[in-house]
């Protein structure tokens, strides 16, 4: 029978003491999820990896001052990544995500739309076209799987405000995607 996984708090404490094994374990445990978060917020893999790297640099730096039993590490990582993505997007306002990710033909045929790759592009484009807060809320809850309380903490809003962002975001997504995948949404 295998041992239970070491807690994040314990690993962070070991990182603070310069433990390379703990660094690797934390990176392998959380890196993929942080890259996914940054990718969905930025729409670019290279930028997402840069942000993820910076997030972990901050974790290494902060580890010695980590307070066990306080915020969950996942919450902290999501919050730092979210802020880095906001900074990144603010620096490149001249090339917004929606412009970079928009499909060439906004009205492809149904046969194309149901194609997995095409549909994925449409979903990414629709997500990128949402107002920033709505997109962040949907990424945190739907894609990252955060609970409502944790997502609200990351966004620094109330749970009611989070629900409002989620509902408005999902309604907007449904409207946009109904044009390209009506059958999949039961509107065909």
């Amino acid at each position: 029978m295998s041992d239970p996984p070491t807690s994040d708090d314990t690993l962070v404490a070991r990182v603070g003491a310069g433990d390379a094994v703990a660094c690797r374990e934390l990176a392998e445990r959380h890196l993929h999820r942080i890259v996914s978060l940054a990718y969905r917020l930025l729409g670019n893999h290279a930028d997402a990896e840069d942000v993820a790297q910076e997030t972990f640099v901050r974790l290494w730096t902060h580890a010695a001052r980590w307070q066990p039993g306080g915020a969950r590490l996942t919450t902290w990582l999501h919050r730092v990544t979210l802020n880095l993505c906001r900074d990144h997007r603010a620096r490149r306002r001249e090339q917004p995500l929606e412009a970079a990710g928009e499909p060439v033909d906004p009205r492809p045929s149904l046969a194309d739309a149901v194609h997995e790759r095409t549909l994925a592009l449409h979903v990414s484009a629709a997500l990128g076209s949402l107002p920033e807060r709505q997109r962040e809320a949907i990424v945190l809850c739907h894609y990252q799987g955060l609970g409502n309380i944790e997502a609200a903490v990351v966004l620094d809003v109330s749970v009611e405000a989070l629900e409002s962002l989620l509902a408005r975001g999902r309604r907007a997504l449904r409207r946009r995607l109904a044009a390209v995948a009506p059958a999949l949404l039961g509107e065909g």
Binding site: G18, C23, L31, V35, R40, A52, W60, A120, V123
Partner: peptide, 21 residues
């Protein structure tokens, strides 16, 4: 349907290169 790409092995190496030790 919108799947995010995985973290590359190179990124893991870069991240570990910045680790305290």
């Amino acid at each position: 349907q919108a799947v995010a790409p995985a973290a590359s092995p190179e990124l893991l190496a870069r991240v570990l290169a910045t680790a305290p030790s």
